[in-house]
Design a protein around this nucleic acid. Structure first.
Length: 939
RNA sequence: GCGGGCGUGGCGGAAUGGCAGACGCGCUGGAUUUAGGUUCCAGUGGGCGCAAGCCCGUACAGGUUCAAGUCCUGUCGCCCGCACCA
C-alpha cells in the first residue's frame, strides 16, 4: 500500500486515479477522434486501418471478462497502427434490438427502449473504464432512428432487386419488369404460362415475387400458440417448447424471405478472397453445402412426374424404390384419396405423416438409427430399366433439401440400405468398387465402375463413375427426363419475426393483398407504443404489432405510395412482423464510416476511403475480431448484404471483412469429485496444495465454463477495482494465444501487476514522483530495447500479444535496480531509452504510458507519438555462443564472433578438448555449421 | 459418421526443421525489514552423482533428416463444428 513514505507507489488506488484522469483528458481533447475525407485537418493520402470489434448486445448483466479480451486486442492494434502513421477507424456501438429486453417488457411492462438505454449506459461506462481508444463520436445503436431508417432502406433495395443469373449479379427489378413487358413475355402464374399483358396486377406481382431478393414466401415454421411466437428448431424439444413445455405446431406461414440462395456460389467462391481462419471458411462452405448432380423425373402412376435430386445419377439402374418426405405434396394427395390404398392403409399413412409433422427437424435427426416409413400405395417407373418400383414416404428424406424426394439405391447408400433392410425392399448392385466387393451385407458408397446397368434405353456398363454420371445425364437431357443440377444445402433466409422489439418492415398491403413498399421519404418507420408487449395467444401467428390498430391501418398517402398506383385515401395495412436481430448487425461496419449521414446510408467518399484505402488496395475491414459463435450466421448474412450492395453499386468491395480473427473463450476453474460431478468454487478449500470439498473428500481442479452455479464468474469491475484497467488488459493479453481458450487464474494477475509496478519503479521514484534516469546508457538494455522494438511490432502484427508482453518484461527486468543499489542513476534507463520504451508500452498499458510520457516532458498524448525505429545491427551481439553437437547431442559450447566463417567455426569446434576426446582422433564424416546457432559433427 | 483443431514442467504458456521449457504463476534458499507484507538476488523438467558430468524427457509407436515439439504414417485422448443433406 502507498503510505506516507511512498505516496507515488503504483498501487490500485494510484492506478485508479491516473487511469480516470487520463480517460477524462482523452475525452476532453478528443484524442481518439478521427475525421473523414474532406474534413478539415484530415489527410486522406495517409493509409487507413479499419479495426473492428463485433459489437455487443448490451445485456442487463453488464460486461463479462470475455468482452474485453477481443476489445483489448483490437485496442492494441488500433493504437499501434496509429503510431505507425495510419488513420485508424476504431468504433464501438450497440446491437440493441433483441429478445431479452422484450421478454422483460412482457413481464414488467417497462418499454424495451428504457431497459436497453440503461444497459447501454452501463456497457459504455464499463468500456470507457478500460481506456479503449474508440472514437466515441461514431457510436450508435441499431435501435437509433437514424440507423433504423437505413436498415429499412437497405431492405427496400433488396425488395426492389432481383438476381440476374446471366449477369451474375443483382439488378433493379424494374429493369426485369420493363424487359418482360416490352416483349410481352409469357410468365408462369399458378402453374400456367400467361402473357404479361394478360396478367392481373396481382399475378404480375406474384411472378415478380418469385424473383425478388426480398420476397414474400411460405415456409414451415415451429409455431407455439401458447407463447404466441415462432420458435427456432433448437427451441423445440419433442414437439414442445423448450421454455414452458407448450405444444408446438409445424405450419406453413407467409413470411418475408431473402433469396440468399441466389448468392450461394459467390458466397462460396469468394471465401478464397478473405484472410479468415480455415475452420470458419470450412464451416461456411459446409453450411452452403454445394453438391453437383442431376434432377430426374420419375413417372408415378396416376400422379405425374416425381422429381428427385441425386449426386449419383450413375446409380440410376440400382434405384429399386423411391422415398418422399412426409410433407411432400404427393403424400398429401394420397391421404386425400388419390391412389389405390384401402381405407386402413390410408389411415396408417395419415397417422405416420401427422406423427412426423409435429416433430421438428432436430428431433427427427436425433434418433437417426431407426428407419421408419410407410408405403404410399403408388408406383413409379425407373426410366432406365422400365421397372415398376414402389414409392414410400419416410422421415429420413427431408422436405427442405433437394426436391424432398429421392430415388433410393440401397446397394450404394447406407441410409437407403438400412431402409431397404427394414422394409425388405430389393437391393441391386450397380457399381463395382476395386478393393470393396459388394457382399450384400452393407452398402458400398465409393466410386468405381458401373455394372448391371444396361437396358434397351441406355447402357453404361464398365464406365467409371465420373463417365457414367456424364452418360446418364446426357441421356436424361436428350430424353427430356432430367438434367444436370447443382444443389445447395443453404436455404433462403427467413427474415420475419413475430416480435415487437425489431425493425418494422417498410411495406404495406392493399385490400387485394398486394404489397407496396413504403416511400423512402416516410422512413424511418418507427415502432408504435404498446400498452402490453405480450404475444397474442392464438392458433395462427399474430404478432404483437397487430395490437396497434391505429398504426397498422393507414392510407396509401400515409405510406407515401404514388397516387397513380393507389389512390391516396385507399386503406392499407402495415406489415406487423418485424426484422430479426441479425438485421442491424449486417451492415453496421459500413455505418461507422459515416455514422451521422442523414442523406445516405454512408457517403461514397467515406465508404471508399475506409473500405479500400487511399490507393484502393484494401479489401474492406482490415481486422475484425469476435467470437467464433458467429462463424456462420452473422458472417454469412453480412457478406450477403454486402454483396447485394456491391452489385447495386453502393459499396466498393466484394467482401466486407478482409481479415477475421476469433478470440478464444475465457474459462474458469471448478472442482471435480471422483464421480466426475462438479463442485462450486466456494465449496472447496485448499490444504497442502490439495483441494478438498468442505465436509467432503478430495477433489481435483478442472477447467470449466464460467457459470453462476459454479460461483466462478469473474466480474471485470471487481478486477479493475483491485488492480486497475492497465493490469486487467495486460493480464488478458498475457494469458496465452488470443485464439486459444484459456482459464482465468486469479493468482496469475499479480504477475502482470508486479510487472507494471516494476516498470513504474524503473521510471519513477515512489517517494517523490520524480523521474529516475540512468546517467549512462547500458549496452545490454540498448540491445534489448532494439530487439523489443522489432519483436513487439512483429508480434502485434500477428496478434501474438503474450510474447510481445514477455519482450517488454525482459527489458524492464534488465533495467530493474537491485535493492542494494543506492545511486539510482546507475540503473534503469536513460531519458531517451525510457522515451522509446514508453512508446512500446503505450498500446498495452496506455494509462501508465501516458503518465510516464508526461513526466518525460511531452505535452501531447503518446497516442500521437511515432513507433520507434530499431537498428538491425543492434539485434545481433558481436559475439555469439554456439552449441557444439556430436551426433546431434550438445557436448560443448563455443563463443565466436558473430561473423565467424563456417571454416573457422569448424576448426574451433574440432579444437575443443572435449570434442576431440569424443571423436577419438578419427576424422568426422560430416560437419554441419548453422551460422550463429550451432555446429553438428557427425563422427 | 464427416470436417477442423489440440496434446510440451506442479500451473498458464514459449520455441522461421537448429542448444526444449522464453516470460509469468507457484515453489526453495538468501539479502533488506523489529516482524509480516513489500522489494531485490539466486535456484527451480525428471533420474543418478560430492562434483565434473552422464542418462531420460514435448500423448504413444514408427519413419524422413547431420538435426524433429516442429515434417510424414499409424494409434490413443481431448475440444469445437456439422450431421439421415440423397
Amino acid at each position: 500500500m502507498a503510505d506516507s513514505e511512498t505516496p507515488f507507489r503504483y498501487d490500485a488506488a494510484f492506478a485508479d486515479r491516473i487511469e480516470i484522469a487520463w480517460q477524462q483528458r482523452w475525452e476532453r481533447d478528443g484524442v481518439y477522434r478521427v475525421g473523414n475525407p474532406g474534413d478539415a485537418g484530415f489527410d486522406a493520402s495517409k493509409p487507413k486501418f479499419f479495426v473492428l470489434d463485433m459489437f455487443p448486445y448490451p445485456s442487463g448483466a453488464g460486461l463479462h471478462v470475455g468482452h474485453p479480451e477481443g476489445y483489448t486486442a483490437t485496442d492494441i492494434v488500433a493504437r499501434f497502427k496509429r503510431m505507425r502513421g495510419c488513420n485508424v477507424l476504431h468504433p464501438m456501438g450497440w446491437d440493441a434490438f433483441g429478445l431479452p429486453a422484450e421478454q422483460y417488457a412482457v413481464q414488467t411492462g417497462v418499454h424495451p427502449r428504457v431497459t436497453t438505454a440503461k444497459a447501454i449506459d452501463n456497457f459504455r461506462r464499463q468500456l470507457k473504464r478500460f481506456g479503449f481508444c474508440y472514437d466515441w463520436g461514431r457510436e450508435f445503436g441499431t435501435i437509433d432512428e437514424g440507423y433504423v431508417r437505413w436498415t429499412q432502406w437497405i431492405w427496400l433495395q433488396a425488395y426492389a432487386s432481383w438476381y440476374d443469373s446471366k449477369a451474375g449479379k443483382a439488378r433493379p427489378i424494374a429493369e426485369l419488369e420493363a424487359a418482360v413487358a416490352a416483349h410481352d413475355e409469357a410468365v408462369e402464374v399458378g402453374g400456367v404460362a400467361k402473357k404479361w399483358s394478360a396478367c392481373t396486377p396481382l399475378e404480375r406481382q406474384r411472378w415478380l415475387d418469385t424473383r425478388r431478393l426480398a420476397y414474400l414466401g411460405e415456409q414451415t415454421v415451429n409455431w407455439c400458440p401458447k407463447l404466441g411466437t415462432v420458435l427456432a428448431n433448437e427451441e423445440v424439444i419433442d414437439g414442445r417448447s423448450e421454455r414452458g413445455g407448450h405444444p408446438v405446431k409445424r405450419l406453413p406461414l407467409k413470411q418475408w424471405m431473402f433469396r440468399i440462395t441466389a448468392y450461394a456460389d459467390r458466397l462460396l467462391e469468394d471465401l478464397s478472397l478473405v484472410d479468415w481462419p480455415d475452420s470458419t471458411r470450412v464451416q461456411q462452405a459446409e453450411w452452403i453445402g454445394r453438391s453437383e448432380g442431376a434432377e430426374i423425373d420419375f413417372a408415378v402412376e396416376g400422379f405425374g412426374a416425381l422429381r428427385v435430386f441425386t449426386t449419383r445419377p450413375d446409380t440410376l439402374f440400382g434405384a429399386t424404390y423411391m422415398v418422399v418426405a412426409p410433407e411432400h405434396a404427393l403424400v398429401e394427395a394420397v391421404t386425400k384419396g388419390a391412389g389405390s390404398l384401402d381405407a386402413a392403409a390410408r389411415a396408417k399413412l395419415a397417422a405416420y405423416v401427422l406423427a412426423s409433422r409435429d416433430r421438428a427437424d432436430v428431433d427427427r435427426q436425433a434418433d437417426s438409427k431407426e428407419k421408419t416409413g410407410c408405403f404410399t400405395g403408388l408406383h413409379a417407373v425407373n426410366p432406365a430399366t422400365g421397372e415398376r418400383i414402389p414409392v414410400w414416404t419416410a422421415e429420413y428424406v427431408l422436405m427442405g433439401y433437394g426436391t424432398g424426394a429421392i430415388m433410393a439405391v440401397p446397394a450404394h447408400d447406407e441410409r437407403d440400405f438400412a431402409f431397404a433392410k427394414a422394409f425388405e425392399l430389393p437391393i441391386r448392385q450397380v457399381v463395382e468398387i476395386a478393393g470393396q466387393p459388394f457382399t450384400g451385407e452393407q452398402a458400398t458408397s465409393g466410386e468405381g465402375a458401373a455394372v448391371h446397368s444396361a437396358s434397351k434405353a441406355l447402357s453404361i456398363d464398365g464406365k467409371a463413375t465420373v463417365e457414367a454420371k456424364r452418360a446418364v445425364i446426357e441421356w436424361l437431357e436428350g430424353a427430356g427426363l432430367g438434367k444436370r443440377r447443382v444443389n445447395y444445402r443453404l436455404r433462403d433466409w427467413l427474415f420475419s419475426r413475430q416480435r415487437y422489439w425489431g425493425e418494422p418492415f417498410p411495406v404495406v398491403f392493399d385490400e387485394h393483398g398486394k404489397h407496396h413498399p413504403v416511400a423512402e421519404s416516410k422512413l424511418p418507420l418507427t415502432l408504435p407504443e404498446l400498452a402490453d408487449y405480450a404475444p397474442i395467444e392464438s392458433d395462427t401467428p399474430l404478432p404483437p404489432l397487430g395490437k396497434a390498430t391505429d398504426w397498422v391501418n393507414i392510407t396509401a398517402a400515409d405510406a407515401g405510395i404514388d397516387p397513380k398506383v393507389l389512390p391516396a385515401t385507399s386503406k392499407v395495412r402495415r406489415e406487423t412482423n418485424t426484422m430479426p436481430g441479425w438485421a442491424g448487425s449486417c451492415w453496421y461496419y459500413l455505418r461507422y464510416c459515416d455514422p451521422m449521414n442523414a442523406a445516405r446510408f454512408v457517403s461514397k467518399e467515406a465508404e471508399r476511403y475506409w473500405m479500400t484505402g487511399p490507393d484502393g488496395a484494401s479489401r474492406g475491414v482490415d481486422l475484425y475480431i469476435g467470437g467464433n459463435e458467429h462463424a456462420v450466421l452473422h458472417l454469412l448474412y453480412a457478406r450477403f448484404w454486402h454483396k447485394m450492395l456491391f452489385d447495386l453499386g453502393h459499396v466498393s468491395t466484394p467482401e466486407p471483412f478482409a481479415k477475421l480473427f476469433h478470440q478464444g473463450l475465457i474459462t474458469s476453474h471448478a472442482y471435480q469429485r471422483t464421480d466426475r460431478t462438479l463442485v462450486a468454487v466456494d465449496q472447496v478449500e485448499e490444504r497442502d496444495g490439495k483441494f478438498f470439498e468442505k465436509g467432503g473428500g478430495e477433489v481435483t481442479q478442472v477447467v470449466a465454463k464460467m457459470s453462476k452455479s459454479l460461483k466462478n464468474v469473474i466480474n471485470p469491475d471487481d478486477v479493475i477495482a483491485e488492480y486497475g484497467a492497465d493490469t486487467f488488459r495486460l493480464y488478458e493479453m498475457y494469458m496465452g494465444p488470443l485464439e486459444a481458450s484459456k482459464p482465468w487464474n486469479t493468482r496469475d494477475i499479480a504477475g502482470v501487476f508486479r510487472f507494471l509496478q516494476r516498470t513504474w519503479r524503473v521510471a519513477v521514484c515512489e517517494r517523490t514522483g520524480a523521474l529516475l534516469l540512468a546517467a549512462k546508457a547500458s549496452d545490454e538494455i540498448e540491445r534489448l530495447l532494439h530487439r523489443a522494438i522489432k519483436k513487439v511490432a512483429d508480434d502485434i502484427e500477428r496478434l501474438a500479444f503474450n510474447t510481445a508482453i514477455a519482450a517488454l518484461i525482459e527489458v524492464v527486468n534488465a533495467a530493474t535496480r537491485p535493492t542494494e543499489m543506492t545511486d539510482p542513476t546507475q540503473g534503469g534507463m536513460t531519458r531517451e531509452q525510457l522515451d522509446r520504451f514508453t512508446r512500446l508500452l503505450a498500446p498495452f498499458a496506455p494509462h501508465m504510458a501516458e503518465e510516464i510520457w508526461a513526466k518525460l516532458g511531452h505535452a501531447t498524448s503518446v497516442t500521437g507519438a511515432a513507433w520507434p525505429a530499431f537498428d538491425a545491427a543492434m539485434l545481433v551481439d558481436s559475439s555469439v555462443q554456439l552449441a557444439v553437437q556430436v551426433a546431434g547431442k550438445v557436448r560443448a559450447h563455443l563463443t565466436v564472433p558473430a561473423d565467424a566463417s563456417a571454416a573457422d567455426v569448424e576448426r574451433l569446434a574440432l579444437a575443443e578438448p572435449k570434442i576431440a576426446e569424443l571423436l577419438g582422433g578419427k576424422p568426422p564424416r560430416k560437419i554441419v555449421v548453422v551460422p550463429k546457432r550451432l555446429v553438428n559433427i557427425v563422427p
